[in-house]
Simulated scan of single mutants.
Amino acid sequence: MIHLTDKNSPLHEKLEIGLLLAVVGGFLDAYSFLCYGGVFANAQTGNMVLLGVSLINADYINFFHYLIPIIAFSFGILMTEYLLKYLSGSFYIWVLITEIIILFIIAFLPDNTPQVVVTAAISFMCSIQIGSFRKICGAPYTSTMCTGNLRSAMGSLFLAISNKDSHSLIQGLRYLSIILFFCIGAAIGAICVNWWGKISVLLCCLLFSILLLLIIRDLIYIKRKQQQLSDAINK
Rank of each mutant, 00 (worst) to 15 (best):
M1W: 10
L4R: 13
L4K: 09
E13L: 10
E13C: 10
K14N: 10
L15I: 11
E16G: 14
G18A: 13
L21P: 00
L21W: 02
A22P: 09
V24A: 06
Y31D: 09
S32R: 02
Y36S: 01
Y36V: 01
N42V: 00
A43W: 03
A43Q: 00
M48N: 11
V49Y: 05
L50K: 10
V53K: 02
S54A: 15
S54H: 05
L55E: 05
Y60R: 09
N62I: 01
H65Q: 11
H65F: 14
L67G: 00
I70R: 09
I70Y: 12
I71W: 00
I71C: 14
F73V: 00
L83N: 13
L83C: 07
L84T: 05
K85Q: 15
L87V: 06
G89D: 13
S90R: 14
S90H: 14
W94D: 11
T98H: 06
L103M: 15
L103P: 08
A107N: 00
L109F: 03
P110R: 11
P110I: 06
P110F: 08
N112L: 12
P114F: 06
A120E: 03
A121M: 15
A121L: 09
I122Q: 09
F124L: 04
C126R: 02
S127H: 14
I128K: 13
Q129S: 03
I130W: 02
C137V: 12
A139V: 08
P140W: 13
S143M: 11
T144K: 07
R151M: 08
S152M: 10
S152W: 04
A153P: 08
S156K: 01
L157T: 06
A160R: 05
S162E: 04
Q171N: 13
Q171G: 04
S177K: 02
I178F: 13
L180Y: 00
F181D: 05
I188Y: 05
I188P: 00
G189H: 02
A190D: 07
W195L: 15
W196N: 02
G197R: 06
G197N: 03
V201F: 04
C205H: 04
L206R: 00
L207G: 05
I210R: 10
L213R: 05
L213Y: 10
L213S: 14
R217C: 05
D218I: 01
L219P: 00
I222N: 06
I222G: 03
K223A: 15
Q227V: 13
I233M: 05
